[in-house]
Every structure is written in C-alpha cells, then in structure tokens.
Amino acid sequence: MSASVNRIGWASVSPALLWTLVFFAAPFAAMALVSLSPKGEDGWSLAAYGQFFTNPSYWRALTNSLEVTLAVTVLSVLLAYPFAWILAFLVPERWQRLALMLAVLPFWTSYVVRSYSWLLVLAEKGVINASLTSLGILGEPVQLANTRMATVTGFVHFFVMLLTLTIYANLKQLSPNYRKAAADLGASGLQSFVHVILPLTLPGIMVGAFLTFVLAIGDYITPQILGGNNELLMPQLIMMQIGRRGDFASASALSLILMAVVTVAYLVCARWLKIERT
C-alpha cells in the first residue's frame, strides 16, 4: 500500500487515538502520579497505599465491597437463569419478545431514580413496612433501608434484568436440537440441563457474571442511596476522600487498588471468557 493511502488511514484513526490518549491515558497517568504524592507530604511516597493496609476501615471497605459484589453476582445469576429459561422455552414463541421487553422495561429508568424507588419500598414508613404493620404481621417497622440488604436488593434488581437479557440470548442461540437429542437419548429434563444446556451456556453466564461483578464493584450510586453510610463500600470510600477531605492521593490510590481487584477478577474468569466454541 502506498504512503499516501496509509496517510489517509492514519488521519482517520488518529482523532480517536488522540482523544483516548489525552482524556483517558493522561488522566490515568495523572491519577497514578497523584497517588504517589500523599497530601501534606513532599516528594514521592507509598503512604497512600500503605494506609490501605494499616487503616482497618479501608481494608474493611474492600472486604465489604467484595462480599456485597459476590453476593449480588451469585444471587442475580441464580434468579435470572430460571427466569430466562422460562422466557426462552416455556413462554409461547409469539409472546416472547413482549415478555422479554417487559422484563427489562425498568432497565430504562434512570439509574439514580431506580435506586431511589427502592428506597420508597424499603423506607421505615415505606411500602413494605406499611403493608406488614397494617396487616399485623409486624408490630413495629423494621429497618430495611440503609442496610447491606438494601444495597444488595437494589443491585440484584438491576442485574437480574441485565442477566436475563444475556442468558436469554444465550439459550436462544443454542440449536433446539441439542435438547431434542438429549431427550431422544433418554436424558430427563434435569439430566439434559446438567449435562448439555448448562455446560453450553456456561461461557455466556461467565461473561454476564463478570460484567455484573465489574459494574457492581465500581458503582457508587446504589450503595450510597440504599446502603447509606453505616458501612462503606470502596466507591463510597473513594468519593469520601474527594468530597469531605479533598484527599486526591488516597482517592487515587484506592481507585487503582479497585482496578487491580477487577483485573484479578478478570484473570480468574479469563479461561471461561474465551472458551472455544463451535
């Protein structure tokens, strides 16, 4: 290919490349540098990272985040899989598109609003407490909002919809003949699921689970609105460094640690994320 032709190629790709370098790579580098020059200190130091291991509340934010995110991921997959299965195989073909659209309709609410609407349900005088007390099931309202359970509920609500979409797509792209063949060879419904359908949809589930993990562990809105400040998750801790303390070094260090955790999660999942397909 001639030089002039290649120049056109470079001209067309360089705006996007430049944009990414200036507004993504450079800020990232800036963040890394800032994390090495802690507040109130001259010169370079790893103090911002050190506090992560010395300050127990920092460490706890990470374990909280991991616990919540893992619970959310597992619960969402467990709830969404049977639901997607029902949509894909039990609902009559001509109703499926509508059933699926309905299942993800609240997906289109604004993310902030979705968390807020759970607050309406879970608040001390909210729908659940009001119903249960008026029915006499509860004597007094129980605390549902500002708990870890509230955070998990809000997250699961969002990710059940997301995973239903991905798992449904996965189930539908399997040839219906796999199930027929298994049944023909004597497999019961359960055997067909365990030996054939589950292994074949596992790559898709892993992709969905990984996506859930990454999005949930980096999210600030849901834990802040629903979990409150009783226990902090990593994104809340990071925002707190910026907002209340103006401590960019800590915030940067915590962000990079969070990224490292996601990278580890990726490496753990990697062997499933690019499984061979025929």
């Binding site: 027929k180 063949a181 074949l200 397909r277």
Partner: peptide
C-alpha cells in the same frame, strides 16, 4: 416421549454436544 419410544434421531445439524468428546457423545445414551 422421545426417550420412551424405540426410535433414535440423527438431526440435520447433527446436534453433537460441542463440549463433549466424540466418545462421550456416542456413549451419552
């Protein structure tokens, strides 16, 4: 049901289980 009747089907797309070896496929029944 298909499993209960003395028939077996060879599907047009073969429907071989891609995650199993050839031997495991043949021995599945």
């Amino acid at each position: 049901a298909p499993a209960r009747r003395p028939t077996a089907t060879v599907f047009q797309d073969y429907a071989l289980f891609p995650h199993m070896s050839v031997g495991a496929n043949v021995g599945f029944g």
